[in-house]
Design a protein around this nucleic acid. Sequence first.
DNA 1: TTGTTGGTTAGGCATGGGCCTAAGCGTAAG
DNA 2: CTTACGCTTAGGCCCATGCCTAACCAACAA
Lengths: 114, 114
Amino acid sequence: MPNQQHPIEQTFIALSDPTRRAVVQALSEGSATVSQLAKPFDMALPSFTQHLGVLENAGLIVSRREGRSRVCSLNPAALKDAEDWMAAHRKQWESRLDRFEAHLQNAKKEKSND
Amino acid sequence: MPNQQHPIEQTFIALSDPTRRAVVQALSEGSATVSQLAKPFDMALPSFTQHLGVLENAGLIVSRREGRSRVCSLNPAALKDAEDWMAAHRKQWESRLDRFEAHLQNAKKEKSND
DNA sequence: TTGTTGGTTAGGCATGGGCCTAAGCGTAAG
DNA sequence: CTTACGCTTAGGCCCATGCCTAACCAACAA
């Protein structure tokens, strides 16, 4: 059964492999079956399917069975979650930097007022 | 010598570990020395320093020596690069979805014009 | 000088991840 | 019914990663 919880950790793990990032990139162009996705890679199919499993487990992709094929599509929500995590910390740091620079400006002004 | 190239791969690898994400989170609150950062973790110092090495190698943090301490700070640029990568693919997929839905709407309208 | 503090280097162990081949299994086609 | 296709399951190999301890080094303190 597919893991219904998709902690952000799984997203970063999934995206830390070049094959899996390439799959995400490919799927951003549109849905595709397993063998269509696998074609560009010089890799045995079971290895490739394992990568898809990691991506699906992270919630980055979803798949539906269609005849004897399996069609995969991107799930933007998981990407968004990871983006948000990074943006939150980045912005907090950037705003601290801004306040620090403002403080420096302020100190400079105070001094020129002496 | 520190790796001067920071491909996006290193960023995702770095963020795929809970200890390292916690460090990023801590550093978003402000700069800190190695031992300050290490304190919350139940881990030998060499293990922790290794994590800092991964983060620095990914360009996520920078550090300067100060006396016998080493002060680390966050580098928002690396976070931004990874955010951008994800946002690009997410948005491309979302816009495809939008066009697809518009197409469905269109087909529906055509049919009602029969 | 002698210690102490803050951190790094060296080296080793155990688990996990990525890759493979071989075999199985359900669906579709002949 | 038999064959072919599109995967998935099982199991094994190998290297990378995360963790440890022990030893080292450089800066400051007594």
